[in-house]
Amino acid sequence: MAQTLTARVWREQPQRYRMIANKDKKSGKVYFPPRLVTPDDLNAEFEDVQLSGAGKIASWTVIRVAPAPFTDLSPYALAIIETEEGVNVTAQIADCDVENIKTGMPVKFEFRKIYEDNEASIIYYGYKAVIV
């Protein structure tokens, strides 16, 4: 389903490009994407933190039937990554042999093209994991 996501994607650049999360100053809990409130405190104070990009695979799958903008990539690996900071992030695992992925494998994040609507559209960039 082709949509023009220009503004939506632009708005998320700090997260997509640099993995800017935020941290509840009181509890130290890190949120990605950043949150405005916590379940415990509507007036929580936060500070921005940049995720280091290091993590490990908490769970994973291989998408063999892909949704509309990703069909050319399939089969592609997708994982929930437990980052060094403790917050989990969903990301594709790029450049991997999909037959050899295992839970617990260490990964780092790289800057990749996520998708484009068509050859005339804006290109959407963001993070993907690669196995270290």
Binding site: R8, E12, Q15, R16, F32, P33, T61, I63, V65, A66, P67, P69, F70, L73, Y76, L78, V89, T90, A91, Q92, I114, Y115, Y124, G126, K128
Partner: peptide, 13 residues
Amino acid sequence: AEYEGFQGVTFPG
């Protein structure tokens, strides 16, 4: 949509 769908998530996935 922004943090799962954007990454190519499907429900089977």
